[in-house]
C-alpha cells in the first residue's frame, strides 16, 4: 500500500465517480458518444486505480477474481442469449424488433441489453487481465521451480 496521503484520499474520492461515469456512458450510449466498450473500460479503470493505490490484495477483496472470471463469460452469454431469445420469439438471430410489440421499442431494448453484455465482458476481461499481470510477479516469487534471474528482478 502506498503511503501518499493525497493519492489515497483522491483515489478514494474519485472511485465512485468513475463508476458512476461508467454507468452513464453505458446507458447513455443511445443518445451520446459511448457504449459498452468504453463503459466497460472505464468501469475497470476504477478498480485498477484502487489496486494501484491500495494494493492488489485489497483490490481483490473489492473485485474478487472469481466474480470477474464469471463476468467474462456472462457478458458473452447475455449478448448471444439475446440472439437466442429473439429466435425463440420468432425473429432471426439478433433481430431485436420482436422483443416488443413496437419494433422501434424492441430495437431500443435489444441495443440496451446487448450493450450491457458488452460492458460486462469488457470490464471483467480488463480486471482479470490486470490482476493476472499484476499478480504474476508474486506467483513467480512463490513458486520454487521457477527462479527469477537477477536480470529479470532488476526490471
Amino acid at each position: 500500500m502506498i503511503q501518499h496521503v493525497v493519492l489515497r484520499i483522491i483515489a478514494k474520492l474519485l472511485a465512485p465517480f468513475i463508476l458512476l461515469f461508467a454507468f452513464y456512458v453505458q446507458f447513455h450510449g443511445d443518445f451520446g458518444p459511448g457504449g459498452g466498450f468504453q463503459a466497460g473500460v472505464i468501469f475497470a479503470t476504477a478498480f485498477i486505480l484502487y489496486a494501484l493505490i491500495y494494493g492488489l490484495e485489497n483490490a481483490r477483496e473489492a473485485a474478487p477474481p472469481v466474480a470477474a472470471q464469471i463476468g467474462v463469460a456472462l457478458g458473452v452469454l447475455i449478448y448471444a442469449g439475446t440472439g437466442v431469445v429473439t429466435m425463440l420469439l420468432g425473429g432471426t438471430f439478433l433481430d431485436y424488433s420482436v422483443l416488443s410489440a413496437n419494433a422501434g421499442d424492441g430495437q431500443h431494448y435489444g441495443i440496451l441489453i446487448v450493450e450491457f453484455g458488452v460492458g460486462v465482458t469488457v470490464s471483467a476481461v480488463m480486471i482479470t487481465v490486470f490482476f493476472a499481470f499484476a499478480g504474476r510477479r508474486g506467483v513467480l516469487e512463490e513458486r520454487e521451480d521457477v527462479v527469477p534471474t537477477e536480470e529479470k528482478m532488476d526490471g
Partner: peptide, 18 residues
C-alpha cells in the same frame, strides 16, 4: 475480447493462484 481474457488466464493463471 472474451478469448483474449481466457488466453491471459490460461497463460498467467487468472490471478487466483497467489
Amino acid at each position: 475480447i472474451f478469448t483474449a481474457g481466457v488466453a491471459v488466464m490460461i497463460l498467467l493463471g487468472g490471478g487466483t493462484y497467489r
